[in-house]
Amino acid sequence: MTAQAWLALLIFLAVLTALAYPLSIYISRIADPLPIGGIAGSIEHAIYRVAGVDSKDMTWTRYAICLLLFNALGVVVVYLVQRLQLWLPLNYQHLANVSGDSAFDTAVSFVTNTNWQGYAGESTMSYFTQMLALAVQNFLSAATGISVAFALIRGFARRSAAGIGNFWVDLTRCTLYLLLPLSLLVAVLFMAQGAIQNFDDYKQVRTLESLTYAQPKVDAAGMPLKDAKGDPVTESVTTRTQTLAMGPVASQEAIKMLGTNGGGFFNANSAHPYENPTPLTNFVQMISMFLIPAALCFVFGRMLGDTRQGWAVYGAMTVIFVGMAILALWAEQQANPLLVRMGVDQTHGILQAGGNMEGKETRFGITASALFATITTSASCGAVNAMHDSFMPLGGLVPMWLIQLGEVVFGGVGSGLYGMLIFAIMAVFVAGLMIGRTPEYVGKKIQSFEIKMTSIVILVTPLLVLVGTAVAVMTEQGRAGIFNPGSHGFSEILYALSSAANNNGSAFAGLGANTPFYNMLLAVVMWFGRFAFIVPVLAIAGSLAGKKRIEVTAGTLPTHGPLFIALLVGTVVLVGALTYVPALALGPVIEHLQLLAIH
């Protein structure tokens, strides 16, 4: 690892902590049921009046039903806007209505905060669809995640209470007081740095040189054509013109990162200069992905009245993140043995980045790409500034495994914290089994019901990933989408299912996933990865809220010190390792060994 990489990692963590802690004070106030005064408070109450919202506390079942119906309505709206976009305003490129399977996949994807994109934004979605369907869901899906985190924290903090908060109040406050102002601030910064924000027609420009490139050939259904050996068939294309896509990018970019959504305005996502124009915007994008998830750790401590608990969760997340970031940064700085054999100089120096530059933006280089990849997959964001498919096998294993851990290393806004707190419950349960005591966490007894719900949460995503991958590799429609046969093709499918089930949304590319088969499979996986996870979390919140808080005694396991951090890290890593190592061995591990064999 280079000195620059160490420095980047250190500065990133320092800036993140310095911003997240004060933000947590502000977010704690939003989570507090006390009314907020001033103009903002008036707007909030006007929204409740217009919507007919009763802001009383809800039981967990009522909270869950409201959340579910609201999100299902979101799927219907996003689906309809895509299907009708040709006749809706702001479609200057006359883009066709999106096909049913792709529209359904995208609707579920944006509502579940996954933002998996089987389409290319600039050639598929009108400005109206981008703004009124996709960007709106970027706000609402993020607010939904934070609301569930608030509900779970209240479950721990309240004593003998029947309710866990009000979904409509949480949703409105998160959107109005947190996501909108932060997005406005970050969007203006992005515009100042050169991110575009307009409603212009796309521009045709003549390039200085003619460009010739190899393009994979596809059949009428959009599937890759393959030769007798199973390799993709390509055709040579030469061009001297380029189409520059325009659009209201900066405003969508801000919430894309802050809400850990990750769905790019353009197909190239954050590698595109109009989405991510400078090293400063790249740094702000990385900070934005972790800002709210990191702040929510401290919110947890503040709402419990014991900030040490928040620091412990933050510490456990940081330990895993730093370990994985170091592995990714190291792996990407290594020379590719295949290129070494061809005599290519890949050493790091003043004049070249060295290491593996394939699939990376030269504007960002190895450090900013590997760090971005680690952050975007630790958080369930899924924005990319480099192509993960082109990472070295171990470099590619890092994002994939971080996703498979359940997106709990900072994770998605809200979902990262509630996912990590579920692992904390599992950790105290394991510790309780070892010492023969009834487990308790932050003053609440953990009993049979909470462990049953925890088991559902921990088992549901691996079930979706592994069964989904098995279905894809065993069926003709699943294998037909593979551009790269062999272990790398398996990695691409495993990554796609991992990304969908854990609501990340990034891709290993190289997989033709915009087909009826993958659109349906991934939509079902994304839905259950989100809501079959949230329902038991809310059930735990409701059960815990009804319990008394028990006092700390000499026999209580301290959950704020290094011992508990180590226990929590061990639980997350062991569950992740035991569940996915066999599948990873068939993909990135084999690829790595194949490269070593060549060396």
């Binding site: 079942t61 869950a64 039903i65 579910l68 119906l69 299902a72 799927v75 219907v76 689906y79 299907r83 049913g100 399977d101 529209a103 359904f104 009993q447 049979s448 019901f449 049953k452 719900m453 559902i456 349906m520 939509a523 079902v524 839905w527 259950f528 809501f531 079959a532 329902v535 038991p536 059930a539 409701g542 059960s543």
Partner: peptide, 30 residues
Amino acid sequence: MDLLYPAVLALLLLATIALIKGCAALERRK
């Protein structure tokens, strides 16, 4: 407009409501 995808959404919704009911039933039995 095809009806397959709205039907799939309805099924997903019903399955998740069944999960809520199942979890609530488990809670009552505790």
